[in-house]
């Protein structure tokens, strides 16, 4: 059986909020290392990969592999019943029909319990190799969100160009064009504001801003975001979570003009 307790329901609420507009029905794959999720959007252009390691829970118990097929809009309805600071316990039997979510208030005696019916989801799973990216940009997540929002007003797509000079987000639209260039920046007082560019070779790729803006819904989960690029491979946008856990988004590049 599965029994996993999170100190704060907020983590799962934010994760589900960040991915529910991209993917609808997902398997939460549970085993003794934690809870993982991989799902592609309907158009097979973007992929969500989440890993919540067992260390993120206390306690965590999962005796055998269990796939919890859950509709994210149903999960959202139930998670709305939890306060951010509630303790969240997820329970399921070995061959479950339902998953049980229990919310306990940390400062009162309220205890809420909900069951969500599970679905059989036959999900395609992609093998994503460990990749050495040509460029990795680490920047404040709100800054990335703002750039995507600002450029979305002008265009549907953005080119991201990394050189030793910095990273340039540029777009071209009907009303005109725009570009934001960031250089490496180190702020000792506010390390959250740091911008780091690791570059082994220059990269230039074009992506849909609609998808990037969607990924930015995860901005509340981490103060900084890693944007990993290599020519002619999908972009990786990674939000690091506590206990070596993560929420990653992959996006296929646009090719041809």
């Amino acid at each position: 059986m599965l029994e996993a307790r999170l100190e704060q329901a907020e983590l799962l609420k934010k994760v589900v909020d960040a991915i529910k507009d991209l993917v609808q029905d997902c398997n939460f794959d549970c085993n003794d290392s934690g809870v993982a999720l991989q799902a592609m959007d309907n158009s097979h252009v973007a992929l969500v990969s989440m890993m919540l390691k067992s260390e993120a829970f206390s306690p965590f118990r999962c005796d055998r592999n269990i796939a919890l097929g859950i509709n994210l809009s149903s999960l959202t309805k139930v998670l709305r019943c939890a306060q951010n600071n509630d303790i969240l316990t997820v329970k399921a039997e070995d061959a479950p029909d339902v998953v049980n979510l229990m919310f306990e208030s940390s400062d009162s005696d309220r205890l809420s319990e909900y069951d969500i019916k599970l679905m059989d989801i036959d999900q395609e799973h992609l093998g994503i190799p460990e990749t050495e990216y040509a460029a990795t940009v680490t920047m404040p997540s709100p800054e990335f969100q703002r750039i995507c929002r600002d450029l979305s007003a002008l265009s549907e797509s953005v080119s991201i160009e990394c050189t030793k000079e910095g990273v340039k987000f540029a777009c071209n639209g009907d009303i005109g064009s725009g570009a934001v260039t960031l250089r490496s920046h180190s702020d000792v007082e506010n390390p959250d504001q740091n911008i780091k560019i690791d570059l082994t070779e220059p990269v230039a790729l074009t992506f849909s801003l609609k998808y990037l803006s969607n990924f930015c819904k995860a901005s509340g989960l981490a103060k900084s975001v890693n944007i990993c690029l290599s020519n002619e491979v999908p972009l990786l946008v990674e939000y690091g979570l506590a206990a070596n856990s993560y929420l990653r988004f992959y996006l296929a590049p646009k090719i041809g003009d």
């Binding site: 158009s43 395609e124 992609l126």
Partner: peptide, 14 residues
């Protein structure tokens, strides 16, 4: 207009 690629062109199904 650039064409958005399918992810399965880059990664194989497992």
């Amino acid at each position: 207009t650039p064409i958005q690629n399918d992810l399965s062109e880059f990664y194989t199904m497992v």
